[in-house]
């Protein structure tokens, strides 16, 4: 694959040039942390970050997304009919997404874009997006991406991999989409610079490793009934921080809201940590306690997903849930517990 050298002094100019063809999204600092937002004309992404507070999933899958509109005004011909909202699906480019967040989209894709179901909103947004990732030269101590099928220079899920090399970026072209974006910006100085050494250096800085090799051979019900869940779940507050900050959590809830005679049907992120998530109309809740809910989160990510897709865990090792959890519940420790679990006689927790 080609590598293009982009001088940092040509960065703003190139983005400006490409901005006629793309809506740009990038990390911007606000209130002491970075998050992704749509960049205004001329606004530059701020790459002075280790990772954004929240993941980039909201660019494709917003926390609140209008799906349908309707009118309750009987004078209108199409009253009480759900009409799909017209969305801006002009090409967009996400600048500076970390490889972990980009590869998370591939895991999420299994839910939103599969042979049985294609979610029109997610698919349109995803397909219109070019992902120009920024390699992680200095991974955090809480990142364990290399244990989660990813890595600081991982290319899957990306269209371009940018590597910060001091006064310039090295842009590795991964897909045709990526090549087009670089061309639109007028960046075309091919170089034979090698990013392998930088990649090795970054990978060697990963200090956190999590064994996942035995998860698929564990018996689901034995793990489900393991005694350690009581202890593991004790501290949990059942807030939604882990799920909302997670780039691979995809659950949502659909709500109608109307004002006057017009209304919308929208979806909002939901969280398996909330009691309401599984509450039945009858009042029964199959996941009625904290232990049920904590177990579900980890079993889904580290066992059900592993079994269902046969392609590793539903986690990219970005470490956000570890860093943001108010009570320090650490997925690495839980994964270790699950991976090394051997049932003992009488060991049961229902």
């Amino acid at each position: 694959m080609k590598v293009i050298k982009i001088d940092k002094k040509d960065w703003a100019g190139g983005l400006d040039k490409a901005s006629s063809g793309y809506r740009f999204f990038g990390p911007v600092e606000d209130k002491e942390c970075h998050n992704f937002k749509e960049l205004d004309k001329g606004e530059l992404p701020d790459f002075n970050f280790s990772n954004t507070r929240l993941s980039a999933k909201s660019v494709v899958f917003p926390q609140t997304e209008a799906m349908f509109e309707y009118s309750l005004d009987e004078n209108e011909a199409d009253h009480h009919l759900m009409k799909e909202c017209r969305k801006n699906d002009a090409p967009r480019a996400v600048l500076g997404i970390r490889p972990c967040d980009a590869s998370a989209f591939l895991l999420v894709k299994r839910n939103f874009d599969n042979p049985e179901y294609r979610d029109p909103w997610w698919v349109k947004a995803y397909e219109s997006t070019t992902f120009a990732g920024l390699a992680c030269n200095n991974p955090c101590a809480s990142c364990f991406c290399t244990s989660a099928g990813c890595g600081p220079f991982d290319e899957k899920g990306l269209d371009v991999l940018l590597v910060d090399a001091g006064d310039h970026f090295l842009a590795k072209v991964v897909t045709e989409k990526g090549r087009k974006m670089l061309a639109a910006a007028g960046w075309n100085a091919e170089t034979d610079a090698d990013i392998e050494a930088l990649k090795k250096d970054a990978e060697s800085k990963i200090s956190s490793f999590v064994p996942t090799d035995k998860l698929k051979d564990k018996t689901t019900m034995e793990l489900y009934n393991a005694a350690f869940w009581e202890e593991a779940a004790f501290a949990c507050l059942n807030c939604g921080t882990c799920t909302y900050s997670c780039p691979t959590c995809w659950c949502f809830d659909i709500q109608d809201e109307s004002k006057g005679k017009s209304g919308i049907r929208m979806r909002n992120w939901d969280s398996c940590m909330y009691p309401l998530f599984t509450l039945h109309g009858s009042g029964h809740n199959p996941r009625g306690t904290k232990i049920h809910r904590v177990r579900q989160r980890f079993m889904h990510k580290l066992k059900y997903y592993v079994d269902k897709y046969g392609d590793g865990i539903q986690c990219v090792g970005c470490g956000r849930c570890i860093r943001l959890c108010p009570v320090n519940i650490d997925i690495r420790k839980i994964c270790e517990k699950m991976n090394s679990y051997e049932p003992k006689a009488g060991d049961c927790n229902r």
Partner: peptide
Amino acid sequence: VKTNVKVA
């Protein structure tokens, strides 16, 4: 005063 969610 709340308005309906905007369509992005």
